[in-house]
Amino acid sequence: MNMKWWHIGLIIALVLAGGVSLFASSSPDGLERVAIDHDFIELGEGHEVIRSPMPDYVVPGISNETLAASLAGLIGTLMMFGLVYGLGKVLKGTSVK
């Protein structure tokens, strides 16, 4: 099989997002920590401007939390690749030169 370098890169990203991410720390991150310590974390809970299909990196409607989180990571990673790859193709295709 003829694996290109970017196939390997994509596989690494999928393993990270679908597998390793399940072991990620759930503690608040840097900004959230500062926001909690200084009482402005609630400002982050504004009204919803749009309804996200997968809020908080969980696929809705799946009762197994691990599976729901892993799937969200895989879907997001593939979506990122597809979207930016497509964007690149479009930008390249419409080049003025």
């Binding site: 990203a13 997002a17 390793v20 990620a24 503690s27 608040p28 990673t77 990122m80």
Partner: peptide, 25 residues
């Protein structure tokens, strides 16, 4: 393809919170 792979990798890497100090990641 480099743009696509970087986007995928960065999305994945941003999910990986690592513990830093005092209950912060």
């Amino acid at each position: 393809p480099m743009m696509g792979v970087l986007a995928a990798f960065i999305f994945a890497a941003q999910m990986l919170n690592m513990p830093v100090a005092g209950g912060t990641s």
